[in-house]
Design a protein around this nucleic acid. Structure first.
Length: 113
DNA sequence: TATCCCCGGCGTCATGTGAA
DNA sequence: TTCACATGACGCCGGGGATA
């Protein structure tokens, strides 16, 4: 089973502290190989043809859902990575602010003396 | 080396949701 | 209301580390 390419580059998830705007890929313009477009319902007659049509529809649905599930997992993973990056950024900011506060307190104490 | 356990990825089904 | 798509839940499978 082939893998689809990533829609978002690493740069877009860079730890800037901002939430990235996810780029959703445009839907494929052509059906994958092996998928046969169903004949129009009016051209079906025998029970066998109906059964084949039903099978074709089911396979098409399964294939689309397979792809959708992959894409969904990819996006979820990307989202989690983004959150982890944001956590790291905020932790750094917090550390910096605490140090800054400490420095200001020291300064204030020395001036007060 | 064999076995166990955990984890991540996958396919499928059921269901929610928005658009036509 | 119907349809297509997105996503949560579930079970299965294979890889890799830990242990006897």
């Amino acid at each position: 089973m082939q893998k689809t390419g990533m829609a978002v580059t690493g740069d877009e998830i860079a730890a800037t502290g901002d939430m990235p705007t996810y780029q959703i890929r445009a839907p494929p313009t052509a059906l994958p190989q092996g998928v046969v477009v169903a004949a129009s319902p009016g051209s079906l007659h025998s029970p066998q043809q109906l059964a084949e049509e039903a099978t074709r529809k089911r396979e098409l649905r399964l294939m689309k859902n397979r792809e959708a599930a992959r894409e969904c997992r990819r996006k979820k993973k990307e989202y989690v990575t983004c959150l982890e990056n944001r956590v790291a950024v905020l932790e750094n900011q917090n550390k910096t602010l605490i140090e800054e506060l400490k420095a200001l307190k020291d300064l204030y104490c020395h001036k007060a003396e």
